[in-house]
Write a protein that binds this DNA or RNA. Structure first.
Lengths: 217, 217
DNA sequence: TATAAAGTTTAGGTTAACCTAAAAAAATAT
DNA sequence: ATATTTTTTTAGGTTAACCTAAACTTTATA
């Protein structure tokens, strides 16, 4: 588990690297988190040992896959909390940042999932910044019926038909908003599909059902 | 401002002292926060310098007025967050403690006031522990029948008549334990009243019903 | 390409919060 | 009242995260 300080460094590095694309220099980090370059060097070594970044002396750091995923979790938490503060508690826009900066470090995966649900799975925070889902994915892509999806992993985002009976059916088979859904096989004769839910449960669903579940990549 | 650790010590001492009435020994503190007596001695000196407790070598500590007020703020935050987790996010009672333990250290007076408002100024958390108000006062105020309340906002606390039919009736019109209930108008001719529930729903209820709903201010 | 400037790292020090082991004080038992 | 046990404190050490100052690399300039 990461310390509060490690989380702050990682988040800063992730942002400075434009989402993990560029490498980031010591002085940039020092300035962005208001600390001294010597302190950055210390911390950067620690993060490299933990495999969150790669560090090449004098040439800066890059975030690893693992580091990116950790950074996205922190960003997700930050943006969900900002959304909560504005939408539920009636904070003004300008007041939320410092508080969200604290709240983003609360350690409880359950809390974040519940908060996400409570907020209705928002795609963006009050500033319009996209909120990564629990798998670290941004949802820029528009929603399509599961029936039209490829065999790549998708995430259930909404339902077309929101009748109680359909929702009951979905919860019975284990699909919920936010679940990972991957098509395994399509049946020629009736258009039904076999899917994998959250990487662990296989079920068959009818063509009709698959047309009423909206997913994003 | 207090560090996270100082807050935890202070809260533990406050609880062990039964709300500031008894003095507390080093070993009790050490056990309650799972640390070593030597560490407690260190911290206790620090807290004494900050005037949160008085410390007499070998004879334990007492919380000062200032310390009590700080402790109550932390307890207030803890209980408000627990209430939030259960009532709004649907946590089970047993799941909330560890998370609230983290959330209680978030520094933002505004956040706590807004949260309190959002929750409808609860007098007790889901365990029934009283929540101090922002001045550190507990509201022991006794329950009175809604029929006898003023036009100030009140909170439904209990029912006199707990027949199934009455409970069904209450849930049908939107009253539940913890709901904010405010009398808008009293009808002279039959004693029925118009009330506002949770600040958004207006309904009329009979005199008899209003005599069976117990509220606190 | 040598030299200066800018950026980075290393070396060594500080503070908060912990620890262990030994010393000291208080409480208890003989 | 003295000896033993329990409790508490002191002394000194560790770790994470910071710092300054000096040394070293890389980059820019003459």
């Amino acid at each position: 588990m990461l310390s509060l300080t490690e989380e702050n460094y990682l988040k800063a590095i992730y942002h400075l690297s434009d989402g993990g694309t560029k490498s980031v220099l010591t002085n940039e980090i020092a300035e962005s988190i208001q600390t001294r370059p010597a302190s950055v060097t210390d911390m950067v070594k620690k993060l490299a040992v933990k495999n969150l970044i790669t560090y090449e002396k004098y040439y800066g750091v890059k975030v690893t896959k693992h580091g990116k995923s950790e950074a996205l979790t922190i960003i997700r938490k930050h943006r969900l909390w900002e959304t909560f503060l504005v939408e539920k508690l009636g904070f003004d826009w300008g007041q939320v940042h410092d508080v969200a900066e604290q709240l983003e470090h609360i350690q409880s995966p359950l809390l974040i999932e519940k908060l996400d649900e409570f907020l209705g799975y928002p795609a963006a925070d009050p500033h319009g910044h996209p909120i990564p889902d629990k798998h670290g994915k941004f949802h820029v892509s528009r929603q399509i019926p599961l029936a039209e999806a490829t065999k790549k992993k998708t995430v259930a985002r909404a339902v077309k038909n929101s009748s109680q009976s359909f929702l009951d059916y979905l919860s019975k088979i284990g699909i919920y908003i936010g679940a990972t859904v991957q098509i395994l096989e399509r049946m020629e004769f009736d258009g039904s599909i076999e899917i994998m839910i959250d990487g662990k449960k296989k079920v068959y669903i009818s063509k009709e059902a698959s047309e009423n579940i909206l997913v994003t990549e």
